[in-house]
Every structure is written in structure tokens, then in C-alpha cells.
Write a protein that binds this DNA or RNA. Sequence first.
DNA 1: TTAAATTCCTATTATTTCGATAGGAATTAT
DNA 2: ATAATTCCTATCGAAATAATAGGAATTTAA
Lengths: 148, 148
Amino acid sequence: MISKKTKYAINALVYLARENRGNEPIQISKIAESENIPRKFLEAILLDLRNAGMLSSKKGKAGGYYLHKSPEEINIAEVMRLFDGPIALLPCVTHAYYERCEECKDEATCGIRSVFLDVRNETVNMLKMATLSQIISRSEHLNEEKKK
Amino acid sequence: MISKKTKYAINALVYLARENRGNEPIQISKIAESENIPRKFLEAILLDLRNAGMLSSKKGKAGGYYLHKSPEEINIAEVMRLFDGPIALLPCVTHAYYERCEECKDEATCGIRSVFLDVRNETVNMLKMATLSQIISRSEHLNEEKKK
DNA sequence: TTAAATTCCTATTATTTCGATAGGAATTAT
DNA sequence: ATAATTCCTATCGAAATAATAGGAATTTAA
């Protein structure tokens, strides 16, 4: 399971992508209220997203957050990695965070690793395709279906 | 990431599938030593696998564990669910453990859910295909490759 | 120039999960 | 009987998770 932090982050980003006409800063409290996220917790999350270059902020009165990158450039893989670390299910099949399994006899011929490598690759592909834009258009599509 | 418990369990199962000619019970200590798993920890794991119907055991002197099902019938998805719970990354896209996301406004039109539903389905498919037999044959393949 | 509204930053806390160990009861082969 | 083994319950420390607290810094606007 992904952490609540990641889930909240994705929801906040999608909200900003939807709301952001003209990149006006939107306040934490507004996002928190709309997306049902604990205010103070969201504060920390948005700060991390800003430090990671996905959001920008404006301080002081009438300040707030807005997307720094375009909705096509922000994907779920990136957000998950930021808060939950590697997407892979085994340390020996991650790219950036690679770590050998202590108990493993021979990584090169490990059938278990081979399975989890395939799973990782497929998952990362899907999550990289899942940009804010894609999420929004999926949602619109589902809305059409619902009306029928 | 999967837990060490799950990783140890898969390794133990693969070991038993490889070793089991004639279903003679193999002792915990032997498995623990061969697979580099803490003895007492493995004890608890094997017990769970037995209660889940994947292993059988024989008590007392010359006792031990052996596969209850055939290596084609035991897959990674089942083992992961036993120790780590749902495979899905969001509670709202699991089958057996379904739980609504508290903060969610409308599940039916949630684009985020839609993404994670696809990921779950793909992952579960791959992990169900990954039986002990498949793992062993993957490993044999990798061995052939290595020799070249 | 002061007040109000906001982000920024660091610390702290409670709860749960993870990885493992301890100790002995029950069972079985010899 | 004895030795070897699984079975079972309880416990423990460390880490991760989800959140809150409190105030410093910044900015707008009256």
C-alpha cells in the first residue's frame, strides 16, 4: 500500500492541476478542506513537493501553492518515490536505491528476482504514464460513463 | 517493498520444491541454514504456511516440513497476501480487503483509483503466474544464459 | 507602519508494524 | 526413557507512519 502521505500528495496535485487557471497561488487551507486532508499534515507534504520541484509557492498574505511543472510532466511514479521510496518490491530490483538481498546466494540466477524485476518494470511504466493530465482525463471519461 | 517474512517464505518454499523428491520432511534448521534465514523466525513462517495449506508437517523426531500442494499450485500472490496483506496499492482497489478511502469524494469517478486498479490487475496477474515451478524454470534459464 | 494572513521550519508524540528472540509444551522415533 | 523435533504464546526493541504544536519569517494591505 502507498502511504497516506503519497495519497494526499497526489490528491493535492490533481486538485491544483484542475484549479490552476493562470497559476494563481492557492492556500493550504483551501486544498485541505476541499480534499479532506489534515491541514498541518498537508503543510509538510506541500513543502516536500515544492522542494522536489513540482510545486512553487508564494509566501505571506494571499500566498499559497501552484504547479511549477505542467500537468503532463508530473507523474505518480515520481510522487511515490518522493514519499515512499522505491517502487520495486525487492531491494535488488530497484534502480536508484539498489541493495543486495543479504540472504541471497546468487543474484544472477535468482528466479524470484527475475519475477520481481518484471513486475517492477511493468509497474514503473504504468505509473510513469499516469501523469496529472492522464488522471484528469481518466476521471472525465468515468464521468461520461456514469451519465449513460 | 515486500516484508522479509514474505521473502523468507518464498525462498523456503522454492527450496522445498527443489529438494522434495518423495515428500520426505525437511527440518527447519536445514532450511534456515541453507537459505540464510534466522531459525526461530523461520519457525513462525513455516507454521503460517502450514496453516494456510501450502505446507504439511510431521512432528517429533525426524519430523519437518514438506509441500502440501504441488509446485504448480503455489504462487507468489498467495504468499504475499498471507504475510503482507493486499497486493493493491490502494485500499479501494483490493478485492478481498476492500476499504473505502475516507477522504475520497466519489470513488466511481476517481482517476487516481482508475490508475491503481490497472496496476493492481496487472501485478496480480503476473504474481499469480509466478508459481514455484515457474520460479525454478526461470532460474534454470538464467543458469543457461550464464554459462554462455 | 502596523496588523493580518500566510508559508516555512523544527520538534515532538502516539500508534502501529517489523524483525526477531525466548521458553517451554507437545509429539514422535528409536 | 531419551533425544529430537514441531507447536504455541509471549515479549521486545527499532523503525516507520500519521499527525500535531509552536513559533519564525514573509508579504499584503489598511
